[in-house]
């Protein structure tokens, strides 16, 4: 009897639906439903892309900005060196030491020829030009003057220059849809270094006449504008005989520019003499490998010299 009663009691426990049991079953059902939802979303959403660790910093270039190139001017980069000079908008200041204090050079007057050494004391050329000094100056030139803005030495808006430009071509050339006359309207001084490219196709005399035409056009448009002509740089001895433009042609042209400056009332600054070595060719440390274009140290010496003579 008791065994049957025990059995009956057990069966009662197994089949009775107490509130706790109901709640538990509901909980299990809810969990199962949620599990089903999670599994559905997981299976239908796209697989995440293989994430790669960001390589920022790992690919940082070995190109090093060298804002203070003046101090390393003597160990100048070559064309094989990739570098990134820091560029800031005008006015730029070169971060050079105060350096020697030159006595002020004689101020160039219109028609005056200014040569290196007339105002200096024979010491090495200065390189501490002030970009801000040239904020009102437009530099007009050929591929050599493109280096002024290319190297970040002069603000790009102050340079009207392009490869292959000649004095005759400068009057018809447009850069960013503006000609040289229109561009010069924003400036009170124009510094012109042109002629090397023209010499390849025409004689020095006709190029010199073209230079006079260019200057007179500028003076006619802007009577008060200050015009400065720079003699064109020499070429290196290693290439003088290879190029269509030789050192003799350059020297002849530069001598004719003196007369052109006098006739047009321009200041002429003989930067060619500044850039020459003892043999009369472009100094090795001032020359790019092609023997014709200039290095940063050459530009700095040129700009510093021009500033000295114009101050």
């Amino acid at each position: 009897m008791s065994r049957n009663n025990h059995s009956l009691s057990n069966s009662k426990r197994e089949t009775s639906l107490t509130p706790a049991v109901v709640a538990l079953n509901l909980l299990i059902a809810v969990i199962l439903i949620m599990l089903g939802i999670f599994l559905y979303v997981y299976m239908t959403s796209p697989l995440p892309a293989q994430s790669t660790e960001p390589s920022r910093g790992e690919t940082s270039p070995t190109i090093v900005a060298s804002p203070d190139e003046t101090e390393s001017a003597e160990s100048e980069e070559t064309a094989d060196t990739t570098f990134v000079p820091e560029m800031t908008k005008a006015p730029l200041t070169s971060d050079s030491e105060p350096g020697e204090t030159d006595e002020p050079g004689e101020t160039g007057e219109p028609g005056e020829i200014v040569e290196p050494g007339e105002s200096g004391d024979g010491s090495p050329p200065r390189t501490d030009y002030e970009a801000g000094f040239f904020s009102g100056t437009l530099f007009v030139g050929d591929s050599i003057f493109t280096g002024l803005s290319g190297y970040g030495l002069i603000f790009a808006g102050n340079v009207f220059a392009d490869i292959g430009l000649s004095p005759a071509g400068a009057l018809s050339k447009t850069i960013n849809n503006r000609g040289v006359i229109e561009t010069a309207a924003d400036f009170d001084r124009v510094v012109i270094m042109l002629g090397t490219n023209g010499l390849a196709a025409a004689n020095a005399s006709s190029i010199s006449e073209s230079m006079k035409t260019l200057v007179n056009s500028l003076k006619s448009a802007y009577p008060g504008i200050e015009t400065v002509i720079l003699t064109v740089p020499p070429v290196a001895s290693s290439v003088s005989s290879d190029y269509s433009v030789t050192i003799d042609m350059i020297n002849e042209y530069n001598s004719l520019l003196r007369g052109a400056a006098r006739e047009t009332g321009c200041i002429l600054i003989d930067v060619s003499a500044l850039l020459k070595d003892d043999g009369g060719y472009l100094r090795g440390d001032y020359a790019q490998p092609d023997g014709m274009h200039l290095t940063v140290s050459a530009y700095k010496a040129l700009l510093s010299y021009v500033q000295t003579e114009l101050e």
């Binding site: 690919t59 990739t82 570098f83 290319g150």
Partner: peptide, 13 residues
């Protein structure tokens, strides 16, 4: 910068 570093270029600024 990566392009410059990864290629053969003349002097570039």
């Amino acid at each position: 910068a990566a392009i410059i570093e990864g290629g053969d270029f003349p002097e570039m600024t």
